[in-house]
């Protein structure tokens, strides 16, 4: 019996270290005034996985993503990045809000790519990419430039490093935005409808970069309408409806044989 207990403990230990989620969300709720946008969501995100968030407009997927890096402040629940809470610590039911600098420090672990790119127009492409490594990580300029160039090369925009964002196409701007987020070498990359604002012929180049990142084993959470990308690249798909996770599972399940009726209807409408 002694053996059994020791085995049980080491099993538990193994399970804990082997499957410690990079992001753990517990009972996340968010209301805007009277409207409840996220209802008590609990979900884990494992390292190295690509998770796609699907759902109709208003289902809360963007809000969920923005809660992860505390750009939206949850009404209830907590979010743990590598075991450390972001934004607020919940202790015996009371929430203790973190200071802005604490939140900023946690945000360094997450990289976000926005639908509207949000490149800073008064800085060059390279300037955009090295700004955060220099200001936030405190890297000296030479080092930041090296890292910046490395990631610009990754998104195939080395030749544009001294251009200003206004001169670039949408697809190019979004790739710069991805390089900017990558330059901070975050643990998780968050994509908030990264291709929705792009003309159709430009989405390809961005999706290609995202596929490349996925193939390298980057942990990604992607809110998207690009169903082909979701099906081909994700390890797991979450289907949101009305602020809750209606269904979750591997792409084969969500796209092939969804269990919920709403999910089935959504997938069939969008795939046509």
């Amino acid at each position: 019996m002694g053996d059994g207990i020791i085995n049980a403990y080491s099993d538990m230990e193994n399970r804990m270290t082997a499957t410690a989620p990079t992001i753990r969300v517990r009972n996340l709720s968010k209301s805007f005034g009277a409207a409840e946008v996220l209802k008590d969501i609990s979900v884990d995100f494992q390292e190295g996985t690509v998770t796609s968030l699907l759902g109709a407009s208003g289902s809360g997927k963007s809000t969920f993503l923005r809660c992860l890096n505390y750009l939206e402040i949850p009404s209830a629940g907590e979010i743990l990045i590598e075991g450390v809470p972001i934004g607020a610590t919940v202790c015996n039911g009371t929430r203790k809000l973190h200071s802005p600098s604490e939140v900023a420090r946690m945000r360094m672990k997450l990289g976000m790519v926005f639908q509207s790119f949000n490149l800073w127009p008064h800085m060059t492409v390279l300037g955009n990419v090295i700004e955060a490594p220099m200001r936030v990580l405190g890297l000296p300029r030479k080092e930041a430039v090296e890292i910046g160039r490395q990631f610009l090369a990754k998104v195939n925009l080395t030749d544009k490093e001294s251009a200003y964002p206004a001169r670039l196409s949408g697809g190019q701007q979004q790739r710069v935005a991805i390089a900017r987020a990558l330059a901070m070498q975050p643990k998780v990359m968050l994509f908030d409808e990264a291709t929705s604002a792009l003309d159709p012929e430009l989405t390809g180049e961005v999706l290609e970069v995202m596929r490349g990142l996925a193939a390298e084993g980057t942990t990604m959470i992607v809110v998207t309408h690009e169903m082909r990308f979701a099906r081909e690249v994700s390890d797991r798909v979450l289907f949101l409806h009305g602020g809750a996770i209606e269904e979750e599972g591997p792409p084969e399940q969500i796209f092939g044989s969804p269990k919920s009726e709403r999910c089935r209807r959504f997938v069939s409408t969008v795939m046509n």
Partner: peptide
């Protein structure tokens, strides 16, 4: 100054002071 620019800076972990002087003011 578009809110998105500030959000991008926040998402990268920049402090409010850095955001004001490096992102908001120049624009």
């Amino acid at each position: 100054v578009p809110k998105g620019h500030v959000e991008a800076a926040l998402a990268l972990g920049m402090s409010r002071r850095a955001i004001l002087f490096r992102i908001v003011m120049p624009q």
